[in-house]
Design a protein around this nucleic acid. Sequence first.
DNA 1: CCCATAAGTTGGATTCATTCTAAATTAAAC
DNA 2: GTTTAATTTAGAATGAATCCAACTTATGGG
Lengths: 195, 195
Amino acid sequence: MAVRADGFRLHSFTKEEQWRGPQEERVLTTVISAHPTSRIDHYLRTLKQAGLRITPQRRAICHFLANTNRHPSAYQIFEELAATNPDISRATIYNTLNTLQELGAIVELSFGSDHTHYETNPEPHVNLICLRCQKITDYYGDPGIDMLTARVLADTDFQTAAARIDLVGFCDECRLQRIQEIRDMAKATSDQHKP
Amino acid sequence: MAVRADGFRLHSFTKEEQWRGPQEERVLTTVISAHPTSRIDHYLRTLKQAGLRITPQRRAICHFLANTNRHPSAYQIFEELAATNPDISRATIYNTLNTLQELGAIVELSFGSDHTHYETNPEPHVNLICLRCQKITDYYGDPGIDMLTARVLADTDFQTAAARIDLVGFCDECRLQRIQEIRDMAKATSDQHKP
DNA sequence: CCCATAAGTTGGATTCATTCTAAATTAAAC
DNA sequence: GTTTAATTTAGAATGAATCCAACTTATGGG
């Protein structure tokens, strides 16, 4: 791994056949937020301010990130970009995502899946992550994040670049299914005692 | 992967030589919380309520989780337990951590590192994650989590098992070092123009 | 207390997301 | 334009996490 003077790392990449689609597609409800134009500008400005070059590949990746309200994985980004930009390398996707993550422009989201997904939405919100179906739902309440970051800065001098709030639990549907399953199991057990 | 009637998965494991220690040790400040005894009881009760057996291995893992205030990785847990329990399998560590995670008793924490770390502290708090030195510091403010989860339940019927709040940014020390580096670079650049 | 059996454990093989490498290309400053 | 360090890329390598199939054991019923 190349380590540059400014401390950024550069990585690269892997076997063709090993790239698989997401085993279980992760769909998610998302309320629209922050205008795409301002979002791509934000990403590009972040790169520029760090003294990094704006390449066509990086521009394409930023464009993708700015225009999605899902929580894409590196694979999903590659798959989409490959359609219009067939020569883009997976290494570049990883490089750019890591760089943006290190700059705090996007936030990594992991929830037991194999792939790392990214939070591209700068709008403060809460992620509701279901332990059963893995669905992520964005919730826009008023978590008082600004107040929290201000207090943290005052107390610890920690300067927040991005916030992530996850509530892990069971969505309504899965909670009901869970109850049903427990009933079914109990029934099956008692049935064994009948002729 | 064995999938049981109750939906739990069982996994296993990997090559001996591939187990390495944490490349960069992740130390972290932590304010003590929830009494160990009540924490181990919580873990064991959670397993029992799910209809799972209490094995010596699971008991040992829960004991470890209850008595640490770090954010251990599977490797770290294995390393410690191996001292007193030399025959414990890495597969068992992964199985148990995954199970506890699926039950919401512990929460997975990922932050760009290779290993997955776990949040074992049920006390609601904020993780301050430094983008530069990767240090995690627990911050106990009043994020109003209870209020938030109650509101989420009312609005969406999502039942929260565990909460995770991460603020990603720069700790005081790294922020200062960063400024210094930028100055040094600027100086080096201007020096090139001198004889 | 003992048995039966489904649940859990184990170590070795395997998978595959991510990182590394070194050569080729290119953005951007002069 | 030229120059040069930054970036990209394809292919090789890494290693955390998972799978597998045989073995062991917790636990409930007799």
